[in-house]
Simulated assay, not measured.
Amino acid sequence: MIGLYCPDVPPIPGGVSDHTLILARSLSAFGAPPVVLALRGNPALFAPMTCVTGLKPTDIADAARAHGVSTVVIQYVPFLFARRGVSPALVLGIRRMARAGVGLAVIIHEPFVPFTRLPWLVTGFPQRWQFGYLMRRASHVYTPLPEFADIARRYTGSGTTVAVAPVGATLPVSPVSREEARQSLGLDNGTVAIGIFSPAASGFAHDWIAAAVARLAPRTEVVWVRFGFGSDRALPGYPSGANVRTVGETDPATVGKVMRALDLAAAPYVDGLTMRRTGAMLALAHGVPTVSSTGHLFDPQLRQIADCEATPEAFAERLERLAGDAVERRELALRSQGYCDLASVEVLAARLRTDLMPEATP
């Protein structure tokens, strides 16, 4: 049986917290319901799956053995385990798992901090040692970024499998119809709704949005829809006025409903589109034509399902063309359907089931 460990699970907010819930549900749908282990959260949200909370990393081994777990998959971001990203308790917990005969797999959302800030010059070295300790003891390592996979391979042993695997959207797809969703936002048939989701997310390219807003200013049919984390903040160059709908930070059902209403999603990131960008993945999961960016972490295979531009000017121009061409929007929407086979959480769940429960795989 597979175990999933994340310090925080819903309703504790956080992208990795949300991902743990949706991954657990996906594994269950594949006939491999996991045992979810956590420090904080509400076990009832995982029912009928087993979820045990109140567990520090040092408690993982005992909890895994008590529930018949053979391998624990740890959701890894260093700051999930300690304020500075360095956790002796995590290292001790991994050591206890090895002694108890409990296998280890790791999903890397972030390996360690770069040496770009003074505090990180201090914490960066122990974070790298901690990361290496996990990598050398894991049988399987998964990450949504090819560059992170390359980093992991430098730390792992010869017997470790390292794979690029998606995170997928961390919120559910809305069952609401497009017509109902658009009516709730006051969008008529002639309106082209362009969504900006969670602009306060780390790495969101604000100047790209500003360039698009300036270029599309003469287009009276365009309505900008701002929703999610930081969407109600005053940001330079962002749209304002009568052609804007601001929903703000809200519940998952409303987020999905707003996604369903969109004609386009504007999702540029300073490091480029990757499979860890769950906001863009949620747009693609809803079949929304998505325009994003390239960058130093950009995953080229995502060109199959989204338009990714190299400059703010090209990004703005692409949005303008799509806003004025319904046929091109439909073609891009059709491409977005490739999300399910390329970048969805179901792809990750299927890989975990195959790798960690080979006896259950037909």
Rank of each mutant, 00 (worst) to 15 (best):
M1S: 14
M1W: 08
C6W: 05
V9K: 11
P11T: 06
I12Q: 12
I12R: 14
S17R: 11
A24K: 05
S28E: 15
S28C: 10
A32I: 08
P48E: 06
T50N: 03
V52H: 13
V52P: 14
A66C: 04
I74A: 01
R84Q: 13
R84T: 15
S87H: 00
V102F: 08
I107M: 14
I108T: 09
P111W: 06
V113F: 09
F115R: 14
F115I: 09
L121Q: 11
V122L: 14
T123N: 00
G124F: 00
W129C: 12
R136D: 04
Y155I: 06
G159R: 10
A163Q: 15
G168F: 01
L171F: 09
S174I: 00
S177C: 12
S184H: 06
L185F: 07
D207F: 09
A210W: 01
R226M: 14
P236L: 09
V247A: 07
V255F: 11
G256I: 02
K257Y: 00
V258A: 04
A261D: 08
G272S: 10
L273A: 12
M275H: 09
Q301V: 14
C308W: 02
F315R: 07
E320H: 11
D325G: 03
R330E: 15
Y339T: 02
A343H: 03
A349F: 09
A350T: 05
R351F: 08
T354V: 12
L356K: 09
P358M: 02
A360I: 02
T361H: 13
